[in-house]
Design a protein around this nucleic acid. Structure first.
Lengths: 204, 204, 204, 204
DNA sequence: CATGAATGAGTATTCATTCAT
DNA sequence: CATGAATGAATACTCATTCAT
């Protein structure tokens, strides 16, 4: 249910030494920062390298393409996101429907706050729809698993509910990313409330 | 009394002749199409001109900047959107809370289906936050007015509710824009349901 | 000695009505202003038309080319300049060598102050060298005539002296045009002094 | 530690490798040539790159802007010019007033003959007046220092005299630049003579 | 492997000039 | 003739990517 694929895409040459692993991490974080600040298209490989206090050549050593760099980062974040959901499973046993939504919101909200570049990566227009579908399916699956585990009695519409959670989260992400709206915490409260109600209704 | 261009004024030249008005309309629609297909950043002034079977010079005659072109289109769509909301006012008098949400969803859903480039325009990263706030405020105001008119008894949290409607619509937009998800009409139904419930609760 | 050619270059269609003459004057002055402000290359036909509160089409009606417009203006200014020199002839009879230089400086200084775009026009890189030589020759000739008339005893080197006067004036022009230097009136005094001395020496 | 480019810093990238230094030199000379031939505005970055048998990208690697390229070249020439003046100091001790002017004319004449693009660079309309004033001041200072060293008894008006030298040189430059006039060596002789006389008078 | 130089196709934008109304 | 729309070659500049050292 969770994703355990090795983080190295076959297209990237994977670093052979520890040195390389550190470099990759630094480059990746630099990319995250620049993608967040500038957006995917406006971010330049040169600026990312500079942010990592590394050279263009070095950046290309590990990520032979801007697309591949974005993808690597995206995949990594998805892995972390799914891992967070999986981890949540151990603590939701026996929760009431009204609580599971909150738990998910809280956990994923934390994730998204820490990795604010995530929506930028997810919104890239050149993600092959296939990969997109797969990613969505995996996330939805993990959320569905959570719902299921917490409230075994819902199995009807469970996939739809999972998708709904995802969409509601997307609002929060967007709102949080957009400084104008994000300030109003009542919006999050509202959304949590709506979800809670829906879940209670699904599993009375 | 001319002044085709003048590097110092950041405004679109408005056409003075019939020919000009027609051309502007064609250019605008071409821009809408290309922005939708490619996204704002990847859209090319050259391609837009080509799509309009105009010369690049003609495009720049009326829209001296890519930003200004996008803005003009965005403003136009916002105008239409707000007009639709205002128009809706005349038909909501006496609706029940449970119906007003549906009415809005339907009307705005239609709009968004017809103008699929809207989210692209609205997501541009270079919109000055001030303008963004103003636009949001206007939309929210019109939605609030609708809610108020239909159900005068809600005045508590009416702005928050309006904002909520906007966010839920954003989901639909995004989902509709994203071919993978948009197909599932149950999602829209879900969202409508959630909103209906919330509104009923607000105005029992 | 002075130039009396008709101001209309054969390449320009000359206006047939009074209306046309006014237009031409307005356009010409607008051109003068814009050339002065922006320089020849940076000046645009569009801006010139706007400055004349006229349309591009109208501008092109009278001056079918930017080059032709600049040339027409240049020729007009040269005509005025030469006319001023010719006019001066009637008042220099019997002046001493030490005075004639001052007289020329004063008169031409006035001209250049009133028509500050002159150096811009004269510095255009695309003036055919032939025309350039002719213009210079005419100016030099008129200055030589002045010197001759005032101090008939100088005939040796009179052309060289005339050229010298021209060059010294160029300094003033440049300096006057350049706000940083122009402020210092002592420079003009110096140049006048040097010229006076040289002339006295030439005609003891 | 890279940072090839970064849209926010208005500086030339300095080369870090030997290859880079060579390229910069080639590009600079190519720029000098094209600026001289075409003038600043008409000179094209593409043509400069071609003249240097480099790619346009290489040119921009080191000179991120046409303005910056011109400035770099201008600054370099000013440096050389000032260096020439400073160097001259060691050989003017004890010269007579009548000689120092000639020495300066000769030295700077050589410089200007070798770097004929200099006036083009100096005449650019977009030089910030502040920089212009500074450059002038430095040149004037060096000339003043020369005059002072050679003829310590002049201190009255020394700055004005230095400015005068500069202006007289400007004539030569302009004349030399302008093929029509430059040919006449008597003009230079005249100017030298005038200056000599003025200096003798200043330091009898 | 790291570094940064080299490449060049691609992009927004300008502007003289021509043309339809 | 006036007006302003149409045209498109030309230009500065960008940036992903490749290569030499």
């Amino acid at each position: 249910m969770s994703s355990q694929k090795s983080s190295a895409d076959p297209t990237n040459r994977s670093p052979k030494q520890k040195r390389g692993h550190e470099r990759v991490a630094i480059l990746t974080e630099a990319a995250a920062k620049v993608f967040l600040e500038k957006g995917y298209e406006a971010a330049t490989m040169t600026e990312i390298a500079a942010e990592a206090t590394s050279s263009i050549g070095s950046l290309y050593q590990f990520f032979p393409t801007k697309v591949l760099l974005a993808e690597a980062l995206h995949v990594e974040r998805l892995r972390q996101l799914n891992a967070a959901l999986v981890e949540l499973q151990s603590s939701v046993g026996g929760m009431r429907a009204s609580e599971i939504g909150d738990a998910i919101f809280t956990r994923l909200g934390d994730f998204l706050e820490e990795h604010r570049e995530f929506p930028v990566l997810a919104a890239r227009r050149d993600i092959p729809k296939e990969r997109k579908a797969t990613s969505r399916a995996e996330l939805r699956g993990n959320i569905a698993a959570l719902l299921q585990k917490a409230v075994p009695s819902i199995d009807n519409d469970i996939d739809l509910l999972a998708a709904l959670v995802l969409e509601l989260l997307r609002i929060i992400v967007t709102a949080a990313y957009d400084p104008d709206i994000g300030g109003d915490p009542r919006m999050v409260t509202e959304l949590r409330g709506m979800l809670r109600k829906r879940l209670e209704e699904a599993a009375p």
